[in-house]
Write a protein that binds this DNA or RNA. Structure first.
Ligand code: MN
Ligand code: MN
Ligand code: ZN
Ligand code: ZN
Lengths: 144, 144
DNA sequence: GGTTACATGCCACCCAGTTGCATTTGCGGC
DNA sequence: GCCGCAAATGCAACTGGGTGGCATGTAACC
């Protein structure tokens, strides 16, 4: 069986997920979702702009990302540097969904998804806890 | 013994901490630190601007806050809304220092310090963990 | 009081993200 | 294939939190 190039695989995956949702298949959505699927860590708007090189307007990129999060095709991580990073949600992934820890590198600023999950503590009376997020800081492999 | 007004107490506390540090006592530093000491939760730049009403320029406010964090007189919490909030560090407080959890209200956007601390998980080989932060989301007492 | 280093005010600027509106495009029906 | 229309896009202008440069003011030391 001849092996497909990785990019093609991810683009096909992206198209499949869009059709699953019954959503319109557009160039921007396919490319952005494929890029997120291919990435091993959450990508910022800026990362994607670089990588997709004039594929679409930056506003469209923002809108596509917001839409992917809305549709639960990706989740958003907010960084100390006040930029959001996006990560495709792999349904088969044990890290699927929210709640897994994210490691923020103090050196290069990159963010990595971790296997660990936040352990949920008790909250004071009257507070309603909906989600817990665990953020780790330090140096990544590259920056150590 | 006649009771001092709360504001005066906090202003005195603020002055004391500044002198402890051997730092210059300025109107802005006293007022900002007193406001943080008086607050029961982390305050944003905007919160403080409202509360201190033309006490100083907004740039000075940013600079005072950055300085307080530098001097370990306060710590900074980064919110999902891309604004920083500041909380005085009470040396006698069991929540002193970084590492305690913060509760972000999805209703009003306020942030609260919690007693719970993040439990530190293992990280992959090559990563150097320096700090762990636990963020809780949900509804605060007011918004429940 | 005079000196001086540090803090402040004011300005213009940056950067991530949003909004409004006209134009294009995916897609279902023919 | 072509049409029609809702949905997506491009473009321009805008918002809001935060920063940098530089001249002026002022707390602390003598
Ligand atoms: Mn993730
Ligand atoms: Mn706190
Ligand atoms: Zn790094
Ligand atoms: Zn609330």
């Amino acid at each position: 069986m001849p092996s497909m190039s990785n990019t093609t695989v991810f683009q096909q995956q992206a198209r499949d997920r869009l059709t699953d949702r019954g959503a319109r298949i557009t160039r921007a959505r396919c490319a952005v979702l494929a890029a997120l699927l291919a990435a091993d860590r959450p990508l910022s708007h800026h990362d994607l702009e670089q990588q997709l090189e004039d594929l679409c307007d930056r506003v469209t990129l923002y809108r596509v990302l917001a839409w992917l999060v809305d549709e639960n095709l990706a989740h958003r991580v907010s960084g100390e540097d006040r930029v959001w990073r996006f990560n495709a949600d792999h349904p088969s992934d044990h890290r699927y969904g929210h709640g897994h820890a994210h490691f923020h590198c103090n050196g290069c600023g990159a963010v990595f998804c971790m296997d660990a999950k936040a352990r949920v503590p008790a909250v004071p009376d009257g507070f309603q806890l909906e989600a817990a997020e665990l953020i780790l800081r330090g140096l990544c492999r590259e920056c150590s």
